[in-house]
Design a protein around this nucleic acid. Structure first.
Ligand code: SF4
Ligand code: SF4
Lengths: 141, 141
DNA sequence: GCTGCTATGCAGTTTACAAAAGCAGAAGAA
DNA sequence: TTCTTCTGCTTTTGTAAACTGCATAGCAGC
């Protein structure tokens, strides 16, 4: 049960955009270099984010990506789910047909609780929140 | 970010034991068949549980495994951590040396919070709790 | 002390998926 | 027209999960 690189990279990418002036356009190459992410891999991730209208793509010279909305309006959950689909700690929390015992299974019940808590945390925090944390930390040091 | 089969099987195994009379010995073959788990795989998992003194092994005829303590005394966290080691959503929540930016990273901060919540849930529930849920469900149906 | 049963320990194999790279092509700006 | 950047595939690589096999050790009952 681990965060994937795709999720980490996606988050770092949108956080990078969040720190810039709202609406400003940044090419992938810049993000990839700044954060040390393989550019092609990041491209794939940003395609998902683009389809989910979290970022907006701009082709051509001086093109790149910009945030599609204010960081205040983008929850971490949105970002993560557009990369890897809905969050599930175990398949059966979603689809009871996977396992015939799912109606009697207390493990499933526990994992459902844990899953809800986890998603809640991701839902309750926006990109703007994270950027703010970051700034506070920088000042503290 | 998914629960592994090893974790699921381990939990199902100890839950199976928890439902039996305390101290009674059950061979792996029985558990594996009852829960539909590959026996050799389960054997490996139970070796970890045995080393963590969650279960006790008994060799020879009529041997098998028994719980080493009362289900009330065994938290889900204990079981999971003896199978896969300490829980971490991302490597850097544990070891700050992995990433040079870890001191400024707000993603790391968020994941630390999420991780603590998750572990808390696993820590707060014992095997006895889960067995109780199970029984209540059976009655309800 | 022999026989059959069950766990132990380690070394595999296979499978699945994450991670990354590659490339032809479309869209856009200058 | 040309250069740039994203787009939509396909393919490769790497790694860890999931599972298997076998030779060995310990125990019980006869
Ligand atoms: S046994 Fe329980 S946890 Fe496993 S798949 Fe079935 S319902 Fe889910
Ligand atoms: S960038 Fe942040 S989340 Fe990623 S490894 Fe470094 S500290 Fe952890």
């Amino acid at each position: 049960m681990q965060f994937t690189k795709a999720e980490e990279y996606g988050m770092l990418g949108v956080l990078y955009l969040s720190e810039k002036k709202l609406g400003s356009i940044t090419p992938l190459s810049e993000i990839a270099e700044a954060k040390g992410i393989p550019e092609k891999f990041l491209a794939k991730i940003f395609q998902s984010l683009s389809r989910a209208t979290i970022v907006r793509s701009h082709r051509g010279v001086r093109g790149g990506f910009s945030l599609a909305k204010d960081p205040k309006e983008i929850s971490v959950k949105e970002v993560l789910e557009s990369i890897h689909g809905p969050y599930h700690l175990i398949k059966c929390t979603n689809n009871t047909e996977i396992c015939d015992k799912s109606n009697f299974c207390s493990l499933r019940e526990l994992l459902s609780i844990a899953e809800r808590k986890l998603v809640q945390i991701f839902e309750d925090h926006t990109l703007a929140d994270l950027v703010k944390w970051q700034k506070n930390k920088m000042i503290a040091i």
